[in-house]
Design a binder for these strands. Structure first.
Lengths: 126, 126
DNA sequence: CTGAATCCACCACGATACTG
DNA sequence: CAGTATCGTGGTGGATTCAG
């Protein structure tokens, strides 16, 4: 399988650790999903229901720093800013998509498991 | 591509959101990676350098609640507990593996981008 | 050995107000 | 429009201790 069979995944000095820390969070994933095409700040914000402007800014900054997206100031008035995926960011959408597809496919299964678990807990507490 | 082209990914009521929240974190991913075969608690802890016992317990509980892993108390003395992947958890290792492989393949690229970004920042501050 | 429980520090986030 | 600045707070994680 494609899963890591190496001895390094879980090592503290494995280079993937800080990377995963930065990209494997909810808002980053959704921001990248939204950026299937270049979009302006408020456009992204509207689509990511629930995100605050502060957090979105931080998320986009981090993605930019990591080379996933590009920030372009448009020469309009008032100022506009357009974000778009870099080739690197584009290449990340594939593994992200896999993960997303998986969650969609197994959401029901997971919810059932959660209910069983919670019931068992309540049973023990009685 | 496999990436989500739907209109639902970033909707607040998208079922994938709470799921991603629970599984797309660093320790969950590494714990699942470690569980390529059944392992005991302290065995896992030793392999996941840097994790505290508290956090590992929480991580394993959540994974168990979500049906990803199974917890089995061994009839030994003193008590032992063995964790193993369920079929559901097993099926998650594939998309996780993709993501992991991606990070490993692009770690260098990302670091370079970070350095360029940080340099640009310092240049502007001057 | 495998936790549960407690205390505490920190910071991540939301809310709000302000600016180029 | 696209942010920055500031403040207050809830929750998360670390360290430590206790228990089955």
């Amino acid at each position: 399988m494609a899963a890591p069979d190496t001895d390094t995944v879980y090592r503290a000095d494995c280079p993937s650790r800080p990377i995963l820390d930065q990209i494997a969070d909810k808002w980053s994933m959704m921001a990248m999903a939204v950026l299937e095409e270049p979009r302006r700040f408020n456009d992204i914000k509207r689509r990511l229901e629930g995100v605050t402007q502060r957090v979105l800014t931080q998320t986009l900054r981090r993605l930019e720093r990591n080379g996933m997206i590009e920030r372009r100031v448009l020469p309009t008035s008032p100022v506009g800013v357009e974000y778009s995926l870099t080739p690197l960011g584009e290449s990340l959408r594939e593994p992200f998509g896999r993960l997303y597809d998986w969650t969609v496919a197994h959401t029901g299964e997971i919810h059932e498991s959660q209910q069983r678990y919670d019931e068992r807990l309540r049973a023990e507490e009685s």
